[in-house]
Design a protein around this nucleic acid. Structure first.
Lengths: 338, 338
DNA sequence: TTTTCTGTATGAATCGTTTAGAATTATGGG
DNA sequence: CCCATAATTCTAAACGATTCATACAGAAAA
């Protein structure tokens, strides 16, 4: 790779010191009282030689890189991809560049990635924490590394997070189904102790009990949950007619659920209503359109990015915020749509 | 942010020079003939002080960062998200970290991003070029910046690219439809001079002409093509019954097309067959499932990453490769599925 | 004793910037 | 003509890691 033009080369070409060149090119000519003439000359030569600063050297010296990191579970999940786009936009507006990475829900991988970002000189990170990652997060926080959490929180870990109130959200979804006349509502969740999942289960269970009904929660493994889901649906709808509505706790679960329901020849909403967390093309396109809870992706992303940058720049100390969520209702939760 | 532990601090703590510490921690103790005792002590202290190298300083000195950049059109598009995941995996296996960015199909933005990566000290980049970006790409290539193109190429620009043979692909899609008995096949494309789009149109037109039929190509704008597509479909299927099959040139077009066909009350494949470029959840979930052309994402991504890294490490000089594509056929292209 | 070698360890330069403080030059007043 | 003051510009020391050339023991050979 061809060598880049350095300050020193410009300095030589202009017959001045590299310090002066640095000052001029950083727009600090006034501040340092540099002569018009010299400044003009330096700028002309820099232009002509196509000078571009070496950001690594600059960061090394200045102590900040204007880079922020984003670690999500899976960048190929549309929910996170959309978040990433928003964060990138917000960060760019404030002069920062975003570097992202997918943790694949692995705490180990996440720890490596956080460390790598830290060592890379990235100014701070936005993290969607995964299971068992509390220790790693705490360690990073203990080093005073600027950090905010997104979409999920870690109870007992003192790092600000930006997310919806998951219990309230699932409770509201449940009540909506109840109001529409569904009584045998089952919740499909993951077998995880992550707080956002726990809260979603809790909100649902609470709402069911408040209505005098028994909660029915099913927890599936993270990977390869397809077979198990098929078994569950067979029980719920075919063998025992035990349910008339389903709430799915993530878009991946909803997606797989729809495939399996179709496979089993079950129709929505006649055999079962369907309500999911987070939207997606698939759900808008499905016939009938699927109802889902919408998280305020734009607000969550920009608030997380802005808060992180505020912390990095020492303007403020970030505080956790619960963002408002909303429901998109479709025929998939209408009782007598027949 | 708390200061990190530096080599010098370890050197002081161990009562040796920082040179020695560097050598030991890089596993070059043998090579430089360092005493067992000193090496042990340094390693112990480094461990104890939780030393982590400052990668920026290392890169500045060594001239390479072990970072590669990836610029795609839109990371929220599942096709690119999947590519990104594969590239990340391949790069990690070879000790590199990937930094990505979305160009939004804007040449200007892309140029800024390429420059930023170049200045960041990123060792090389994988780019999905967009319209009007040829000059910017040529400039970067002229600087000898390691670079490969992905998914699309730029005729007249001498940078290796990894992509399918788009003309052959669309020609094969067209022939498949012809064999199944469709005669009035229309192609829905973008209004762009990008080579991959041109090739897709060409392959289709060629196949039509070979069958003695007139090609019918419709080019839509990149953004907000919805209204125009509705108008076209109304003409094609309602006012004039002029078509019995559609080939969509990208997954975004297919997706929107499905929405509009449904809105217009047209059924697949009775009113029109549907064949798209690139898959997605939506298409597998649609009823009927939608046929599409599959690009070898895993091979394309890993080959691009590996080639780029080979160039960076001076092992080889990359050469363009046409990857094989395949078709997923479903009832959406079956004539008498009624 | 002097010379040569071996095994270890170090100093100093380097990558490209930034910036505090010193140095130079110019200006003008006395 | 000297000196204070201001107006410019420069020197040099960082930032943290790498690596070549060199230093300095002490042991072995002469």
């Amino acid at each position: 790779m061809g060598k880049k033009v350095s300050l020193k080369q410009i300095a030589e070409a202009a017959g001045v010191s590299s310090a002066l060149v640095s000052m001029v090119l950083n727009g600090k000519a006034k501040q340092y009282g540099i002569g018009e003439e010299a400044a003009k000359k330096v700028m002309a030569i820099a232009e002509e030689m196509h000078y571009q600063p070496n950001l690594m050297a600059r960061s090394l010296r200045s102590g900040h890189s204007h880079l922020i990191g984003l670690i999500v579970a899976d960048i190929a999940n549309p929910f996170f991809a959309d978040l990433a786009r928003v964060i990138e936009k917000t960060a760019n507006e404030r002069g920062y560049t975003v570097v992202y990475s997918s943790s694949d829900e692995s705490a180990e991988q996440m720890e490596r990635q956080m460390n790598s970002m830290y060592n890379q000189g990235i100014d701070g990170i936005i993290v969607v924490p995964c299971e068992y990652s509390a220790d790693a997060i705490r360690d990073m926080a203990a080093r005073n590394y600027p950090m905010v959490l997104l979409d999920r929180d870690l109870p007992g870990v003192d790092v600000p997070s930006f997310m919806i109130d998951n219990a309230a959200a699932s409770s509201s979804m449940t009540r909506t189904l109840l109001e529409k006349g569904f009584r045998r509502i089952s919740l499909i969740s993951y077998d995880t102790a992550m707080n956002h999942a726990v809260e979603r289960r809790r909100g649902y269970s609470q709402a069911m009990r408040d209505a005098g009904l028994l909660p029915d929660v099913h927890c599936l493994p993270y990977k390869d949950f397809s077979a198990e889901m098929r078994t569950i649906f067979t029980q719920l709808f075919i063998e025992q007619k035990r349910a008339d509505a389903l709430i799915f706790c993530t878009n991946a679960l909803t997606r797989e659920g729809l495939f399996i329901l179709r496979e089993l020849g079950l129709s929505i909403p006649n055999d079962t209503a369907v309500f999911g967390f987070d939207g997606g093309d698939v759900f808008d396109m499905y016939d009938p359109k699927i109802s889902y809870l919408v998280q305020p992706i734009a607000e969550m992303g920009s608030m997380a990015a802005n808060s992180l940058i505020d912390v990095i720049e020492g303007n403020a100390t970030a505080k956790s915020v619960y963002m408002p969520s909303s429901l998109v209702l479709t025929p998939s939760v209408e009782r007598n749509s027949k």
